[in-house]
Design a protein around this nucleic acid. Structure first.
Length: 415
RNA sequence: GGGGGGGUUCCCGAGCGGUCAAAGGGAACAGACUGUAAAUCUGUCGGCAGACGCCUUCGGAGGUUCGAAUCCUCCCCCCCCCA
């Protein structure tokens, strides 16, 4: 299980999860004493998490693999406030109903990664609305607010970066609420470690201070690096937008493809961070160079997809990709849609309409442009005529294969 | 509350009565080159229309004008200084 690593911290460092620790020696000593409880917070700003949350998620996974107890705290209350960290503008505020719905979605997704339950090392999911929502303002100020120095709060990076663009009072309070979370988790669940992205450093430190004052407890903080791709972009941006963990928002095929298409320079780092492959296997893959790196990316894609969607879905996605890019013939998982055969009757179905209705392109103008740029293919043949109509004659094996550019595919299947 | 400066197409940022769907940069997309990578070069980059062209957009609502992103009025929001 330890895979040659001396400790959890050792593995986290090797895998690239270690940015800063408030007291590394102290935490190492505490870990050596026996299992501990640690937590990471997630913002329920959408009903699905996206790839950007994968680092903290994997943080919980490693924690559990090393026998520690992970707490996933969903910020049902703090989402109503909005964390200014890493933001330059006011977040849109969510309604209670939206947050409730988002919580449910996120809970289901985390369950793919973390084993929740009542056992010793089982994870627990908590919602900070349970202890924050009913707290009275005056009481909260007296109990918690008195421990905070405005001078210190103003010195936080999360606040400083907002001084230019403005920071609302409600956001200014965020760090206090998050700090209080840590106090509650420490008091009621014995939690002694908070982890999070490096942009959470200030909030985490606030929590540690508060725990010391209120609970007289010694607790720790550990942050993960903020991940950007080799080209400097944020994780998970594609033509279609963010890469989501929800299969409904990002299909397993598209999810798989995202990882296959990562920059060469990111391959090794991502293998370490986003897969659970043994160290030796990763080190072997890291030896690959040039075009052979594709093999490493295939492994990366398969592993990451399997963790989220399961091995079967990962295989299916891999086979679909092989069919489209490598000459395999297993096409069932290629993204597609069903249409009634009647659409092809008469003059046929306008290609431009088909491209838009399939979701492949956003507008007919864009479709027209791309046809003129020789970027659209039907059944592998480049289309020259933007007025092209699809008819029954185009159907092969029960479907018409549409392609835009080199990588975007869609199969129209006819009943 | 007073004074000053702002809100422009995904982002930054020009424009300040017509030649503006709106300079420039970034992002993005496509083509070439490749390895489903990067870099580079070229093209595209509001919607509809085969095309002529039509429509919607420059914080919001009105108004002036043949004509407004550009002028006027009111309103909303942001930043800075003063109280």
């Amino acid at each position: 299980m330890t895979d040659g690593f001396a400790s959890l911290l050792d593995e986290l460092k090797w895998r690239g999860f270690f940015a800063q620790c408030t007291d590394e020696d102290g935490l190492a000593a505490r870990l050596a004493e026996g299992p501990l409880t640690a937590y990471i917070g997630f913002d329920p700003t959408a009903d699905s998490l996206h790839i950007g949350s994968l680092v903290p998620i994997m943080g919980l996974v490693h924690l559990q693999r090393w026998g520690q107890r992970p707490l996933a705290v969903v910020g049902g209350a703090t989402a109503m406030v909005g964390d200014p960290s890493g933001r330059t503008e006011l977040r849109t505020m969510l309604t209670v109903e939206q947050i409730e719905a988002n919580l449910a979605g996120i809970r289901a997704q985390l369950a793919h990664y973390v084993r929740f339950g009542d056992g010793p090392g089982d994870g627990v999911m908590l919602n900070n609305a349970d202890w924050l929502r009913g707290y009275g303002y005056i009481e909260f100020l007296r109990d918690v607010g008195r421990f905070f120095s405005v001078n210190q709060m103003l010195a936080r990076d999360s606040v400083k970066t907002r001084m230019e663009n403005g920071l609302s009072f409600i956001e200014f309070n965020y760090m206090i609420l998050q700090a209080y979370d840590f106090v509650v988790l420490n008091r009621d669940h014995g939690c002694v470690l908070q982890m999070g992205g490096n942009d959470q450093w200030g909030n985490i430190c606030s929590g540690i201070d508060l725990c010391r004052r209120v609970n007289r407890a010694e607790v720790f903080g550990l942050t993960f690096p903020l991940i950007a791709t080799a080209t400097g972009a944020k994780m998970g941006k594609t033509a279609a937008g963010a890469v989501w963990l929800s299969a409904g928002r990002t299909s397993p095929y598209d999810f798989f493809q995202y990882w296959v298409n990562v920059d060469d320079r990111d391959t090794s780092r991502f293998l370490r961070m986003y897969t659970l492959l043994p160290r030796a296997e990763i080190e072997r893959l890291e030896q690959l160079e040039g075009a052979d790196l594709r093999q490493a990316k295939q492994v990366l894609a398969r592993e990451v997809t399997a963790l989220l969607h399961g091995p079967a879905a990962a295989d299916e996605a891999a086979q679909a990709a092989a069919a489209l890019f490598g000459g395999g013939d297993q096409e069932d998982a290629v993204p597609g849609s069903e249409r009634p055969a009647a659409d092809l009757a008469g003059d046929g179905l306008a290609l431009l309409d088909a491209l838009v209705q399939s979701g492949l392109l956003a507008s007919k103008g864009e479709a027209r442009r791309l046809v003129r740029q020789q970027a659209v293919k039907v059944n592998g043949e480049t289309v020259a005529d933007e007025l092209r109509l699809l008819t029954a004659a185009d159907v092969q094996d029960g479907r018409i294969a549409l392609q835009v550019g080199k990588k975007r595919h869609h199969h129209l299947r006819f009943g």
